[in-house]
Simulated assay, not measured.
Amino acid sequence: MYSALRGEILTLELKPGQYLEETALEKRFGVSRTPIREALIRLQSDRLVKFSPNRGHYVETVSFNDVPRILEALDLQQGAVLQLSAARHSAADLAKLRKINEAYRIAGESDDHKGMAELNHDFHLAIADAAGNSFLAEFYETMLNFSIRLSYLMFQSAASNREDFEGYYTQVYNEHAEMIDLISKGEGVKLLDLSRQHSRLFSNRTLRFISEWSEIDSFVTDFQPKAQ
């Protein structure tokens, strides 16, 4: 139940701001109120669900005004997990990363945008696992949860600008491949530089997308992640 709701929130099947009625969830999953509330509490800790005394539980909104801070936090955490993974990875970690990135390439060739978003998410979670720090991994995953929902929002414009997205996802694949190579060699300093480059790639794509929305404040479009 938790996994099902989490997946639907990340892929925007459950929309930001959508009310999560406990009675309806009980009927849907065929369980009592207690496990429903336990799942909602876990989703709150993931920052995917919020609770209001007057409204109950609802899907965490994605405020474009929060995007600069999300990207900044993601940039800082990504650099940390990459450097730790260079020092602590195993052969199994490298094999898992290569498998995910190859699946990402195949999804890109098939124009499977949903698959690409999920595999990109899985790739960075796998790096966090290789870093061997569960506290850092938990914080990093929270930011990744925001980023995958931003990715799904961007896919709404993909069909009208396919060439642009092809170039973007090819670059993502290539940078992931370079990350794997540098992790395998223990190149922590080079990984930090690549991490910044990778963050700029995502932030530029994201901010280019949201700049098309007239309600976004001008400071958002000018944002760039700060160097570490």
Rank of each mutant, 00 (worst) to 15 (best):
M1E: 02
A4T: 13
L10D: 00
L10K: 01
T11N: 15
T11I: 10
L14D: 06
K15M: 14
E22P: 02
L25A: 09
E26A: 05
E26R: 15
G30Y: 09
V31L: 08
S32I: 03
R33D: 10
P35E: 04
A39H: 01
L40E: 04
R42Y: 10
S45T: 13
L48S: 03
V49F: 01
F51N: 07
R55T: 12
R55P: 04
G56S: 06
G56K: 04
Y58R: 07
T61W: 10
V62D: 06
V67L: 14
V67G: 00
R69T: 13
I70C: 01
E72S: 08
A73L: 11
A73E: 09
L74S: 07
D75T: 11
G79N: 04
A80H: 06
V81S: 03
L82N: 02
A86C: 03
H89I: 03
A91Q: 15
A91P: 05
A92P: 10
A95F: 13
I100S: 00
N101T: 09
N101E: 08
A103G: 15
A103K: 08
Y104P: 00
Y104I: 01
A107I: 05
A107N: 02
A107V: 03
E109T: 01
E109Y: 05
S110F: 07
D111H: 12
D111M: 13
G115F: 01
M116S: 04
A117M: 08
F123R: 03
A126Y: 04
I127S: 00
A128D: 01
A131I: 06
G132I: 00
G132H: 00
N133D: 15
S134V: 12
S134A: 14
L136Q: 06
A137G: 06
A137Q: 02
E138L: 13
L144H: 00
I148P: 02
R149S: 02
L150Y: 04
L153I: 10
L153F: 10
M154Q: 09
M154N: 06
S157P: 05
A159L: 03
A159C: 02
N161A: 12
E163N: 11
D164F: 13
F165Y: 15
E166N: 15
E166T: 12
Q171R: 15
E175K: 14
H176S: 12
E178H: 13
I183H: 00
K185L: 11
G186R: 02
E187M: 14
G188V: 13
V189T: 13
L191H: 00
S195I: 13
Q197S: 14
Q197G: 09
H198T: 05
H198F: 10
L201N: 05
S203N: 09
S203Y: 06
N204E: 15
N204C: 09
R205N: 07
L207K: 02
R208T: 08
R208H: 10
W213S: 08
S218V: 09
F219K: 08
T221W: 06
T221R: 11
T221S: 11
P225S: 03
P225H: 00
P225M: 03
A227Y: 10
Q228E: 12
Q228F: 12
